[in-house]
Design a binder for these strands. Structure first.
Lengths: 390, 390
DNA sequence: GCGGAAAATTTGATCGATCAAATTTGTGCG
DNA sequence: CGCACAAATTTGATCGATCAAATTTTCCGC
C-alpha cells in the first residue's frame, strides 16, 4: 500500500475525513470512543499528514529560514556553528523545520526572504548578527514577517538601540567584566584589553566591559594606554600583545580567541626570550600564562588550554525558537502592548510569554595552559605495527 | 493586492491558467507572441508559483535533507562546515532548498528520514560520513529514495566496498602520500605517521597513503615503529610526537590538525629543551618546524602556520548536488547500467552524466610556522584612547 | 415520549498548482 | 474551398489537507 491519506484512512474506518482531522487538530471535538479508535488506526497505518496539503490550506509551512553566513574566520565562526546546531534541534522539537539559504549581501538576503516567503511560504526567519540600522529587520517588520535576531539592535552610533522585534544576545561587556574580575582575583592589576579594528558595536561593547571593571576595581586611571586594537587574527594578537606588554600589562582580555591565541604565543615567546628568570619586562604575572583570556570559547581555546569567555549559544538558540514559536502561535496579538503594568484582563493562566528581548550572561571558562608534558593523557600512545600494506 | 496566483494572473491577462503554467514549464508549447506577453505580465506582477501547491500536484518538493551531525571536536569538524556552506549554495543554484535536521543516532536518523519523506516530502538526502555496512544507505536504497553520500562505502573489514549509490569522497591516502612527498622533497627520510585510535576506515586509509609513499621512496623497511596512534586530541598529538621523536623520526604526517597541533607544540618544546644547538634527539630536520603536516587544513592550521592536507570540501559539495540533481531529474533511469562500454545507443547529446562515484584528490598546503616576530603584520596595532566610558 | 439545545459527525468548497483530455485555431495542399 | 492534421489553448479533475456550514446523534428535563 502506498502512503495513507486522510481519505483512504477515512473510508477504511468508515468515518469522515474531517473527524480524523479533528482527532489530530482538535481532539476535544471528538467523542472519546471515536477518538481512541481513530488514534489506533492512525498509529497502525502510520498515517502522517502531508505538510504540503496542510500548508496549501492553512498558509503556514511550519518552516523557518536562516541565512548561512559566508564562513569568516572559522576560528571565531565556531559560535555560530554551535548556535546552528542548537537551533536546528530546538526548531525540530517545536515542530518546525529549518531551511538554510545563502546570500551574497544583506540586500541579496532581503531578495531571498522575498523569494522564500512567496515560493516556500516560510513562516519566519532567524537572523544572526545585526548591523547598526539593520535594513533587513526594517524590511521584515514592514512586511509583517515574524523573525527573531541573535544580536542586539544597534543605532548608527554603535550604541544599543530600542527595537520592537524580538532578539536574544549575549552580554559581551559582562563577559569581559567577568574576565577582568578573574584576573584581578589572580592578583593582576595591569590588565590590558586587546580588541579588533573593525569599529563594530560588538567590539566596542566588549571593550566597555573591560573599562567598567577596571574602573570599579579602582584602576580607572591606569587604563589609558592599556586598550589596544589590532587585526582580528593570530598575527594581530601577537603584535598587539607585544605592545601591551611594552606598556606594562601583565594580563590581557581579548575580543576573540584568534587574538588571544596570538597573544598567548607572543607571551610565551617573550618569556622564553627574557632568559630563565623572566621577570624582565613585567612578564610572569601571578597567573603565569593564563594571564590571557579569549572570547567565544572556541575549540581551539579548549585544545590549547586558553581561558575564554563562553557564549551560551545553545541557550540563545533555544530562546530564539521559543520566542518565534510564541509569536507564530499568535502570542504576539495580545503581547503587542508593552509588558508594563499589564495586570488587568486576568488572562486564564496562559503559559507566561517568553521575554521578547533577552540579554544572556556569558561565563568565563578558566583553563590552565597546555603543559605539553611528555606524560601521556588518559590513554597514552602506542606503537602499532603497520597494518595492511598496499 | 495580495500575492498573485495562476488564476488571478490568468483572468487579468485573459488567458487560461494552463497557458501561464506552460510558459513556465514547457515554453515551447506556447506561441512566441503569447509567451512574451505572459512573461512580461509575470515579471510585472512578480508572480512566483507556490511550492506547496506544486508539490501537492507533482509530488516533488525540490527540497533536500541533511542531518547536522552533533559537533564532535570543532577543530576537525570545520571541514563539514565548509561542506555545508558549499552544499547550501550549490543546492540553491540548482533550484533546491536544503532542510536541516538532527538525530541522536543512526537509527534515529532513519526515523527522521521516514518522517521527513512522509510529512515534508523531501526529494532526497545528503549523508555525511559513512560507516562500514551503513544501515542508512541500505534503508534508503530499499525504499528507493534518492541520496548521495560524502564518504566512500566501506565494508565491515574497513576496506573500500562496492556500492550502487552515488558518493563523493576525498582520497585520504593520496593526501598523506602527497604530504610524505613534500617532506621527502624537503630532505626528510625518517617520516612518521601519527594517527588516531578509533579503528575507523578513514584513519586506516590515511595511514595506507603514508605506508605506500614510504615504500615507494625505498624506506619501506624503516617504517616499522614509525607509525603511531593516539587519541585524536592536541594532548594525544603531543605524546604521540614524543614517541615518534624517540624513535628517530624527524618529520611526521598526522591524521588530523588536532594531532598535528599537539605534535608541533611538542616539537617546539623538545627543541627548546635541547639547548640552543638542538641537534640532540634528531630534531631540527631539514624543514625545521614545518616537519609536521596536519590534515583537513583547519582554520587553526592556517592561523598557526601549520602545513596541512586540504580537502576540497566545496568541490565535493558541488558534485554531490550535481549527481543528486541528475538522479532526481530522471538521469538514473538510463544510467542504471554501469558506465562501462556504453557506446551503443547513440543518445541525442545528453549533457554528459556526472560521475556517480568520485574520488577527489586533496592537496597539501605548505606553510611556514608562525614566526611570531614582533614586526606587526599588514596593519600594526595602535593604541586607542578609551572610548565612551560607562 | 418529546421538544430543543448541545455534541458529534459529515458534506461541499477551497487553497494553487499540474495533468490529461477536449476544444479551438492555424496551416498545407489537393 | 474544404479537408486532414498539427499547433495552440482551454477545460475539468486532482493532489491532500482544513474551513465553514449542514446534518445527524445524543442527552436532558418535563
Amino acid at each position: 500500500m502506498s502512503r495513507p491519506t486522510l481519505a483512504s484512512l477515512a473510508s477504511e474506518l468508515v468515518v469522515s475525513r474531517q473527524t480524523i482531522s479533528n482527532v489530530l487538530n482538535a481532539p476535544h471535538k471528538v467523542k472519546p470512543a471515536t477518538r481512541a479508535r481513530v488514534q489506533a488506526a492512525i498509529a497502525a497505518a502510520g498515517y502522517r499528514p502531508s505538510a504540503a496539503a496542510r500548508q496549501l490550506r492553512t498558509q503556514r509551512s511550519m518552516n523557518l529560514g536562516m541565512r548561512l553566513l559566508p564562513a569568516t574566520d572559522g576560528i571565531n565562526g565556531a559560535v555560530l556553528d554551535r548556535f546552528l546546531h542548537a537551533l536546528t534541534e530546538a526548531a525540530q522539537s517545536a515542530g518546525y523545520r529549518l531551511t538554510l539559504f545563502c546570500a551574497d549581501s544583506d540586500g541579496d538576503e532581503i531578495r531571498q526572504y522575498e523569494e522564500l516567503l512567496d515560493v516556500a511560504g516560510l513562516d519566519g526567519f532567524i537572523l544572526t548578527s545585526s548591523t547598526p540600522d539593520d535594513a533587513r529587520t526594517l524590511w521584515l517588520q514592514e512586511r509583517g514577517t515574524p523573525f527573531a535576531v541573535f544580536g542586539r539592535p544597534w543605532d548608527a552610533a554603535g550604541h544599543p538601540a530600542a527595537a520592537a522585534h524580538p532578539w536574544v544576545d549575549v552580554d559581551g561587556a559582562a563577559g569581559t567584566t567577568a574576565a577582568v574580575e578573574m584576573l584581578l582575583a589572580q592578583g593582576h592589576s595591569r590588565i590590558g584589553f586587546l580588541g579588533w579594528f573593525t569599529g563594530d558595536p560588538v567590539g566596542a561593547d566588549r571593550r566597555r566591559g573591560w573599562e567598567r571593571a577596571m574602573a570599579t576595581a579602582g584602576y580607572g586611571e591606569d587604563v589609558r594606554g592599556l586598550g589596544v586594537e589590532a587585526q582580528d587574527t593570530v598575527a594581530g594578537g601577537a603584535s598587539g600583545a607585544a605592545l601591551l606588554v611594552s606598556r606594562g600589562a601583565t594580563a590581557m582580555v581579548c575580543s576573540s580567541d584568534s587574538l588571544a591565541l596570538g597573544a598567548m604565543e607572543k607571551l610565551r615567546e617573550l618569556r622564553a626570550g627574557s632568559s630563565v628568570s623572566g621577570q624582565a619586562a613585567g612578564l610572569n604575572g601571578p597567573g603565569g600564562l593564563s594571564a590571557v583570556v579569549g572570547f567565544d570559547n572556541t575549540p581551539v581555546a579548549a585544545a590549547l588550554g586558553l581561558s575564554s569567555v563562553a557564549q551560551p549559544a545553545e541557550e540563545a538558540a533555544r530562546h530564539i525558537i521559543r520566542v518565534l514559536a510564541y509569536e507564530l502561535a499568535g502570542g504576539g496579538s495580545l503581547a503587542a502592548t508593552d509588558a508594563v503594568g499589564v495586570d488587568a484582563g486576568a488572562a486564564p493562566a496562559a503559559p507566561a510569554p517568553p521575554e521578547r528581548q533577552l540579554l544572556l550572561a556569558p561565563h568565563v571558562v578558566e583553563r590552565i595552559p597546555l603543559p605539553l608534558a611528555a606524560t601521556g593523557s588518559s590513554q597514552g600512545p602506542t606503537a602499532a605495527p603497520s597494518m595492511q600494506p598496499r
